[in-house]
């Protein structure tokens, strides 16, 4: 599929309209912008269906070719179809959907979150063995300090100095300041990336 100038023209024009509609208080731009935003929302919803179809095809190919782990793919396909049917028949807030959430989705994801906490704890313990430098030591020290600052001990409750002074300064001073700097850099990167897409210098669509 060759690069289509029509796709680029659509992308550029829509992007300019949305941008101008944000900054220029002209009713026409605002109305068009609103309509285009609604189209984008609809397309994003349809994209969910496309993604689900992609997921189905990938695992179906795996089952058909008897690739490694095909049984798990078969289980996924079965669960997908069952949930789809239940949702269509009983609604997204129906009892069956709630049962699926309560018994499958919520426990699985909570377990993965717990696994993540163990993984991060293990990574933190091994960090100085893998990379023994000042940054790693500072990182671990900050982690330990933040954890201790958020802990309440039996009887005494919050640790006095840590909870009152160090924790707020650490959380809303250093951490927030550092995070803001990162977010500023990310925002600038997002700005130039968006402009590249706006000027068709970067086309994540349309083939070659």
């Amino acid at each position: 599929m060759k690069r289509s100038p029509v796709a680029a023209a659509i992308a550029i024009s829509v992007g300019l309209i949305i941008l101008l509609g944000t900054f220029v208080p002209i009713p026409l731009f605002a109305a068009v912008r609103l309509e285009l935003v609604q189209w984008a929302a609809i397309l994003a919803g349809v994209a969910v269906l496309v993604g689900i179809g992609n997921l189905f095809s990938v695992h179906y190919q795996k089952v058909r070719r008897r690739e490694k782990g095909w049984f798990y793919s078969l289980t996924l396909l079965f669960a997908m179809l069952a949930t789809l049917l239940a949702g269509v028949i009983f609604g997204p807030t129906g009892a069956w959907m709630q049962a699926a959430l309560e018994t499958i989705i919520f426990p699985v994801e909570a377990s993965l979150m717990a696994l993540l906490s163990v993984t991060l704890l293990y990574a933190g313990i091994r960090l100085l063995r893998r990379r023994a430098d000042w940054m790693s030591a500072l990182f671990l020290g900050t982690v330990a300090l933040a954890l201790l600052a958020s802990v309440s001990l039996p009887v005494i409750g919050e640790i006095p100095v840590l909870s009152d002074w160090i924790s707020p300064w650490l959380t809303y001073g250093l951490a927030a300041g550092g995070a803001r700097g990162l977010v500023l850099g990310v925002a600038l990167g997002a700005l130039t990336t968006g402009l590249r897409a706006l000027f068709a210098l970067d086309r994540p669509y349309g083939g070659k």
Binding site: S117, L121, G124, I125, R126, L127, L128, R129, R130, A132, A137, L140, V143, A144, L147, L148, S150, V151, S152, L153, P154
Partner: peptide, 25 residues
């Protein structure tokens, strides 16, 4: 209570475990 105990355990594990691994490394 469980949250606080687990958080304390994690903090202590990071401190002492990190120190141990630093010396071992």
């Amino acid at each position: 209570d469980a949250y606080n105990f687990a958080t304390l355990f994690a903090a202590l594990l990071i401190v002492f475990g990190g120190l141990w691994n630093f010396l071992a490394g």
